[in-house]
Design a protein around this nucleic acid. Structure first.
Lengths: 139, 139
DNA sequence: TTGCGTGCAAAGGTTTTGCATGGCA
DNA sequence: TGCCATGCAAAACCTTTGCACGCAA
C-alpha cells in the first residue's frame, strides 16, 4: 500500500468530519460542498473534494457507490473495524439511510450464493435497495 | 398503465431483437448502436435508442441499471413471466454475465431482511456484484 | 525547500431536450 | 391525416485533467 504522505489541512479535516457525522447515509460531492459552505463558511472547490474522496476510497475509508438513479457518485464513510467489506448494505430509496446487514445470516447468504450459484459475492461493490421500516410506516 | 400507442418500425424491432438475444448480460446504448450498425448496417441515432429504452424500462420490458463503475447506464432484457422483479440478480464483474437468483432461498432472504432488519427489499432496483464460477477458474 | 494540496478553466463523457422532419396506421 | 418516431444540434450534468500557485512539514 505504500503510505501516501498526507498533509493535514482544514479542508480535508472538515470533509472527513462531515463524512463521519453522516456515516448512516450516502453523501454526494455537492452535499459536502454546500455543507462546508453553510456550516463553516468554507469554500472548497469540487475538484478538491473529488480528489480527496478518491484517495479515501482507495485507502478504504469510504465506499464509493452510485445513487439509485445511476447519475451521481455517492460516498459512504466506513467506521474502522466495522468489517463493512464483508456484509451487504441496504439503502432506503425514500430516506437514503444505509443499513448494515451485519448479522450471522450474512454468512449463510454468501455460502448459499457460492454453493448454489457458483458466485463469489463482493459486498463492497453491491448495494441493496428498498424501503426501511420508518419510511414504510409514514406513507 | 394506459396503453401507449406504438408504431412498429425496423429500428425498434432490431433494438428489441438485440436486447432479447443478449438477455444474459447488461447492454449499453453504445453497444446497441454499434451492433445494429455492424449486423444490419442500420444507423440509429443514440437519442432514438435512449428514448426507446426509456419506454421499455417504463413498461417493464427491461431493467435499467448502472455499470459497476457508476458511469454508464445499462439495460437488461426481462423475459416475460420470469418474475425478475421478485428475485435478485448477480452480475459478474469480470465477464458481465447476469445470473438470476431464482430459487427458494430468495424468499428466505427477503423474509430475513424484513423480519430482522425491517427492510422491504426491492429486487428490481438492486444488483449484486461478484465473480462467477467460470471467471474465477480462469484466473 | 520539497512535494503535496488547491483552484481555475477546460476537456471529456453520458444523457436529455427542443425542434423540425419523416413515416406508420 | 394524425400522431408517433427519428435525427440533429445544443444543452445539461457529472467527473476528470492540466497547469500554476499555495502551503504544510
Amino acid at each position: 500500500m505504500g503510505e501516501n504522505k498526507k498533509y493535514s489541512t482544514e479542508k480535508r479535516t472538515k470533509i472527513l468530519d462531515y463524512l463521519k457525522s453522516h456515516d448512516d447515509v450516502d453523501v454526494t460531492v455537492k452535499e459536502i460542498e454546500y455543507a462546508l459552505k453553510d456550516n463553516y463558511d468554507l469554500s472548497v472547490n469540487i475538484t478538491t473534494i473529488y480528489r480527496y474522496l478518491d484517495k479515501l476510497a482507495e485507502e478504504g475509508t469510504v465506499l464509493k457507490h452510485t445513487d439509485e438513479n445511476g447519475k451521481t457518485s455517492t460516498y459512504q464513510y466506513i467506521v474502522p473495524e466495522s468489517e463493512c467489506n464483508s456484509h451487504l448494505h441496504m439503502k432506503c430509496v425514500s430516506c437514503g439511510r444505509i443499513y448494515h446487514m451485519d448479522c450471522a445470516f450474512m454468512d449463510e447468504f454468501k455460502k448459499h450464493i457460492y454453493k448454489h450459484h457458483q458466485f463469489i459475492l463482493e459486498c463492497k461493490k453491491s448495494m441493496l435497495y428498498g424501503v426501511c421500516n420508518s419510511c414504510s410506516n409514514n406513507v
